[in-house]
Design a protein around this nucleic acid. Structure first.
Lengths: 291, 291
DNA sequence: CAGTCATTATGCGTTTACGCATAGGAGGCC
DNA sequence: GGCCTCCTATGCGTAAACGCATAATGACTG
């Protein structure tokens, strides 16, 4: 009879490719993971993961087992959600995830009020680079900058975020207002040109003839670069407006903001409470957000 | 993040209804099971199993979790079978299950030869009262007295077992040959009248007017009762014929013998080897078995 | 109503599994 | 080639989990 925790370890190693990576994903030590895998294979009697110079790769025997281990994981996560969904206390922890600027500038005042209203609920605000999975219970609620699709998700629209081209007064005085094409101007962009955010795509078109003045993946760094006169940035109104930057014409991009949670935890009281607070709080800031 | 082994423990308790029963089913102690369940519920934060005077019963929260835990078990068993199915060694353990008499009288000589042919393979012969589940990996191969239906099973017919009415020469001398109806005779039956084995049903009809002389669930006990002159028993030819009992007319019941294994382990060499030995060995005894 | 058999709860000693620390490779990059 | 980083392997001490034993409780039976 195989140990279910060992199956989980096997799954982690098969995914990560290394003992260390697998151990990290489960929050245990690499030495422990190595021993567990050894125990698992000893009991299985078959070699499931072959050690190669590039890490562990599945044998053909392992592939068959992997498929079932993944089914186990799916069921385990569903069980976890089912249990959470049955938690009727108006207390405990809620993990909310969204992008950094929205969290800091828009959500914080809402959460401050919420903390006062529900002292028993602890909100954990996670602003991860990576989009966290609600299905995998990496977070309970998510505020997303686009309408999520598919999955067993429940979604509510929180509002629209308007974007504009901004620059510092000093830059404006020296270079003037850019015309379409942006010839002779400098723009502040993301590290990679990959992102297909609507406002970013529009900017790439509008400033097709401009040069790159600065690059950063952090909106806050972009904001500071903008204030320092390094060029024109495409920023959300809520972020740029209070900073005394000059708003330039030519941008009418906006993005929808959606509140997302998993269907299984829809009825959980503490999630409902935070959800309602976010909907109301965002509604009150509608004018600022749209610009 | 819930512990998968705890989920398994929860499932066991939900099924068994008691900590002790659950512990037995997993091969651990009752104290351990109690502590695991406590840890599980503490982490879940919700009461999943309510303790009642009659044992543990699921709360509504628990029912949701149970369904997922059962899916996990299904996947875990499938994983185990997948792993076993990939074991290419012509060595190791094979667990074979069937009824007691067939095991002792018919299978033993076949297994003795098999043990000599394949010294690396250890055959475990389990003659359990209860029909063991191949899907749950309680056994690897099963010799069944009826054609199994459904499931992901692979089946091969091993032959037919003939039955006859037998009694001791002394009983026969005193009571004569029974006529249809069996009036004035005594029959040896099972403990309960429930079993719907074909030969048993036929006997109940044929001896409708007879009295009950003895009851036992063990065929060996029935055999001895028969030899002791307690009445007429319906016994398989292979069991009764070598014992010097008198065979009576009126019985033409027979049952098919099938070899069963799970589809997932069909290709495993050591199972294939035993399977072939059983098929050949049974074929050689066809005449004796049919009577 | 006592006796039996099942259950759960708890204390104690031991084993096991774990984290930590360290040593020994195996690429990747300047 | 040397350095850096990430990996795996292994020894050691500790802490958590386990088995065992026992007590307490409750249900069924004669």
């Amino acid at each position: 009879m195989l140990d279910w925790e060992d199956l989980r370890s096997f799954l982690a190693v098969a995914r990560a490719g290394t003992l260390s990576g697998a151990a990290r994903s489960l929050g245990i030590r690499q030495s422990t993971m190595g021993r567990r895998l050894a125990a698992f294979e000893a009991r299985a009697g078959v070699l499931l993961l072959q050690k190669t110079p590039r890490g562990y790769v599945l044998t053909s025997a392992g592939e068959a087992a992997l498929a079932e281990a993944e089914k186990m994981e799916t069921a385990a996560l569903a069980a976890e959600r089912a249990i959470t969904g049955q938690d009727t206390r108006l207390a405990g922890e809620v993990r909310l995830t969204t992008i950094e600027t929205l969290a800091a500038e828009v959500l914080m005042p809402i959460l401050a009020q919420f903390a006062a209203d529900y002292p028993g609920i602890l909100v954990k605000l996670i602003s991860s680079q990576r989009t966290l999975s609600l299905a995998a219970r990496e977070a309970d609620l998510a505020v997303r900058m686009a309408r999520p699709l598919g999955g067993d998700l429940v979604i509510r629209k929180l509002g629209d975020i308007g974007y504009g081209y901004y620059t510092s007064p000093a830059y404006l005085a020296r270079h003037g207002v850019p015309t379409p094409g942006g010839a002779g101007h400098r723009v502040i962009l993301m590290e990679d040109d990959a992102p297909n955010f609507p406002e970013y795509v529009a900017m790439a078109q509008y400033f097709a003839e401009a040069e790159v003045g600065f690059r950063s993946d952090s909106r806050y760094v972009q904001l500071q670069a903008c204030k320092a006169g390094l060029g024109v940035a495409c920023l959300a109104h809520y972020l740029a407006a209070p900073q005394g930057l000059a708003r330039l014409p030519g941008c009418d991009a906006n993005r929808e903001v959606w509140l997302v949670q998993h269907r299984d935890t829809k009825e959980t009281p503490r999630f409902k409470a935070l959800s309602a607070a976010l909907v109301n709080g965002m509604k009150a800031q509608n004018a600022l957000l749209a610009g």
